Amino acid sequence: MASRVFKRPIEECGDGSKYRKMMKVGLLAVMYGTSMHTLSNQLEITVEEAQQFIGDFFRTYPQVHSFIKDTHEFVKENEYVETLYGRKRRFPGHRQKAKVYDSLAKQICEILGVDKLPLNVWRNKDIPRDLKRKFYDVKGDVESARRQSVNAVIQGTAADIMKRAMLNLQQYCLARGWSLCGTVHDEALMLVDDSVTECDVKEIEACMTSAASLAVPLVVDTEIMQRWGEGVKKGEWFALAA
């Protein structure tokens, strides 16, 4: 992604590179609607450069831009969004505010002769003060709901997938007398016997990767440890045990 967006050779975008670091921060900003000012502070670039980054990202991945816009339109009309598995996040009262926001935004763009809102509407002297005040009366609530709606679809679906994985893991552990004892976001912590085998680990991973069927593969990284925080990759663990 960094190579495509920044138009740099992929060799320059590996682990530890500034492009990869910027892409990780920028991707979250794009998906969750971080403001240009916040993004500029996070990446230590100017607001104009942050805006350029967002534009470059959407030009590189137009499907992402379409998904975000479609989500905004859906929540405006329906006042809720759904995860992949049908769990809803509701936004009561959003429809009317969003329609007012869109109407005022259109008026502002027509006055300025532009296709999209400027970075700072309030400081623009060409926009009537009363119009700016009406716009800012709804701006915060509407943009917050839009950010949350996109977040709810992505993070909510990720949470659903993790819950499905936990059900698989619980059933697997109970059959072996093991224990699924906790989770940390998208990580599952299990207590297993010292006799755990590579085959067991593959079956544990399958419990997680089979939790959802997506257009892209689900990937699981497994660590084994005797003390929390001192985990090693499964290959290293079994190599040492051999």
Score class of each variant (00 low, 15 high):
residue 151 N to L: 09
residue 160 D to Y: 01
residue 136 Y to R: 10
residue 217 P to R: 12
residue 126 D to G: 06
residue 9 P to W: 05
residue 230 E to R: 12
residue 23 M to C: 07
residue 5 V to Q: 11
residue 204 I to F: 09
residue 155 Q to T: 07
residue 144 S to P: 09
residue 116 K to M: 09
residue 132 K to N: 04
residue 183 T to E: 14
residue 134 K to A: 00
residue 31 M to A: 05
residue 116 K to A: 13
residue 70 D to C: 03
residue 68 I to A: 10
residue 34 T to N: 08
residue 62 P to A: 00
residue 219 V to G: 03
residue 177 G to P: 03
residue 173 C to R: 06
residue 213 S to K: 13
residue 7 K to R: 11
residue 117 L to Y: 03
residue 8 R to W: 04
residue 185 H to C: 07
residue 11 E to Y: 13
residue 147 R to A: 04
residue 184 V to P: 00
residue 126 D to H: 11
residue 134 K to Y: 04
residue 43 L to T: 02
residue 138 V to W: 03
residue 192 V to H: 01
residue 22 M to F: 15
residue 137 D to L: 09
residue 119 L to D: 03
residue 92 P to H: 05
residue 162 M to L: 09
residue 63 Q to C: 09
residue 55 G to P: 00
residue 86 G to I: 08
residue 214 L to H: 04
residue 181 C to H: 10
residue 157 T to Q: 06
residue 242 A to R: 15
residue 198 E to K: 06
residue 123 R to Q: 11
residue 18 K to Y: 01
residue 48 E to D: 15
residue 148 Q to N: 15
residue 32 Y to D: 00
residue 18 K to F: 00
residue 24 K to F: 02
residue 237 W to Q: 05
residue 18 K to H: 06
residue 183 T to A: 11
residue 104 L to R: 02
residue 238 F to S: 00
residue 15 D to V: 11
residue 72 H to E: 08
residue 125 K to T: 07
residue 210 S to D: 15
residue 112 L to M: 11
residue 208 M to D: 00
residue 149 S to A: 07
residue 74 F to W: 01
residue 169 L to D: 09
residue 103 S to R: 14
residue 142 V to M: 05
residue 88 K to M: 15
residue 170 Q to M: 01
residue 204 I to H: 04
